[in-house]
Design a binder for these strands. Structure first.
Lengths: 164, 164
DNA sequence: CCTATATTTCTGTTATAACAGAAATTACAG
DNA sequence: CTGTAATTTCTGTTATAACAGAAATATAGG
């Protein structure tokens, strides 16, 4: 399915294989198993390492590099979130900051346009701040928070719309 | 930037244009402004309507269809989330359910593998349940919740790791 | 009901990204 | 050092998706 997700098939295949593999695997094993070129495996491994979804593990008495995947699903989700943040959100924030700066100095820009750009910027600021903070909370508490679902609203004093 | 995001350039361009447009625009205006083919605009508009990021608005005395974008950034984010859920998450859940079902009946599958598949399935179940519930809470409360950031943890009785 | 205009669908082309295989580089053993 | 095995980088090919233009369909006005 990875092709829909923005990662190419090879990367998704290698990740899936390592995620389900009981033992560490080396590039050749992966290449043989999936029937894709070694160079392709090499690049896929590099990308997965960059995302921190897999890591190298040394095997005593073997020169080849072996890899294992992160198997904790929450940890995996956090790392994907971090990767997407760095690759997608941060550049978007830089871009929109530039846009806002340019729009402010440009008398040809309608005020509504500047306002929408600013709102977008504010949204990105708020949500990334939220993400940064949530990233710091221990996983167990994160899991419990998700488990609560919308009950958090009632547990906080949000009921009557009153400010905290 | 949209090309990185999994949407093609034309769709991203049309969306950006409509998001910043002060007045509704028709297909021809969009085509002229962006310098892309009308057919391309037509398909882009269809996709954006499907994502509910833009909507048709009738202009009295004009046969052509005009479009405006959702300008509320939170609403936009919610609709993108909903779209991704339907297009990416739901199919993934179906796929993994099939995998789990097959793996359970297959004695050749190592127990660790079945366990990992099941954990993944459980994760998706939990997070989509969370999403479904959060989707229902009023936007104002959602905004305040995000504003709290990691303070929610302290406000709930999570401190000592004690169960609710 | 017919005509004009808007819109969508279809088809072919082009651009882009994925991938394979070869070449080059790196790392290690002796 | 030197040779060998492993890995990465480079280059060309192939597959896929984006896009343009033409054809077809639909919609409203007369």
């Amino acid at each position: 399915m990875g092709s829909q997700w923005g990662v190419n098939r090879s990367v998704a295949q290698v990740h899936a294989l390592l995620y389900l593999a009981v033992d560490p695997m080396n590039a050749e094993q992966i290449s043989d198993r999936l029937g894709i070129a070694r160079s392709n495996v090499s690049n896929s491994l590099k990308e997965l390492v960059a995302w921190r979804l897999i890591r190298r593990v040394p095997i005593a008495g073997d020169r080849r590099e072996y890899f294992v995947a992160e198997v904790d699903v929450w940890e995996m989700a956090l790392r994907i979130a971090q990767g997407r943040r760095e690759r997608e959100i941060d550049p978007a924030m830089s871009a929109i900051s530039e846009c806002v700066a340019l729009a402010q100095d440009d008398r040809a820009i309608a005020p509504e346009v500047l306002q929408r750009l600013t709102e977008m910027q504010g949204f990105l600021d708020n949500t990334t701040r939220w993400y940064d903070q949530m990233r710091g909370v221990p996983k167990t508490q994160l899991i419990r928070l998700v488990g609560l679902g919308d009950k958090v609203i009632k547990l906080l004093n949000f009921a009557g719309g009153k400010r905290k």
